[in-house]
Design a protein around this nucleic acid. Structure first.
Lengths: 135, 135
DNA sequence: TTATTTGTTATAGTTATAATATAACAGATG
DNA sequence: CATCTGTTATATTATAACTATAACAAATAA
């Protein structure tokens, strides 16, 4: 597993986990249909409680990134990922607003911010370039 | 005051307040040297506790956006705003990483995200276009 | 059948943060 | 002197995050 948690961070563990699973999907390391570890095994692997893993799974399931079958366990949604919903766009704009405000105040130009955005986007896709299967 | 709080929001009140003051600076509604209301009067105005206002002021003071004089009270830092520090860039990259990951998974292209970034940046500067002085 | 693993639910306890309510202090203002 | 300023201290309530057990129903494998 490529998950690394910072137990000292202010951001909740379940959020870190959900974010990293999402990053795994974005990079191509995880693809639709891929199975995820059971809540118990992943919890043991990471040294955290099973409910914390379950909460991360629930968040991703709620948004449509995961499916939970009584048979197959937890898998990346085989029907594909959810699209750019209005709710997501609202969330995105709201978060960007705060960041853009501070960036502007600190003297970062519009294009510098946009370029940083592009750079980060690239890094994400780059991190899973080979399109590895298994593991 | 242009501050509007959502007491039902999950984001802390003091964070909302700090964010909106920052947005006020970004828009030009607040400029270096401008005075801010006292913690007590702003708290009464917003219907919240003085400690909540104080915490917002402390956060902004800590980052160098505000100065507190025993005489003049709280003012927007007259020596100008802090620049793009390494710490700020790290924070920015970290937050952008999460947003970019979900955006990518949902099928938003690199340029769509960058364009949204530019759009939000514009809205911020636009909201205080006239360069109003006083109130 | 039995045994195990799965996600899920329930309950309880701890810790930390957010927000409030008072109160008091020292420095500056009128 | 009285008032207003930021600041500090203490206490309380509410909520979120995390953990610890325990149990259940459905599926799998012996």
């Amino acid at each position: 597993m490529f998950v690394e948690l910072d137990l000292q961070s202010e951001t909740p563990i379940y959020t870190q986990l959900a974010d990293q699973l999402l990053a795994g999907i974005a990079s191509g390391a995880l693809r639709p249909g891929d199975p995820l570890p059971s809540v118990r095994s992943l919890a043991a692997d990471l040294g955290i409680n099973l409910h914390t893993v379950n909460k991360a799974y629930q968040v991703l399931k709620q948004e449509g990134f995961l499916q939970v079958h009584r048979k197959r366990g937890v898998v990346i949604n085989p029907d594909g990922m959810p699209g750019v919903t209005a709710a997501f766009q609202d969330r995105l704009r709201h978060q960007l607003r705060g960041m853009a405000a501070e960036a502007a105040v600190r003297g970062m130009s519009q294009e510098e911010l946009a370029e940083l955005c592009r750079s980060v986007y690239d890094e994400i896709r780059q991190s899973g370039e080979g399109g590895n299967r298994d593991e």
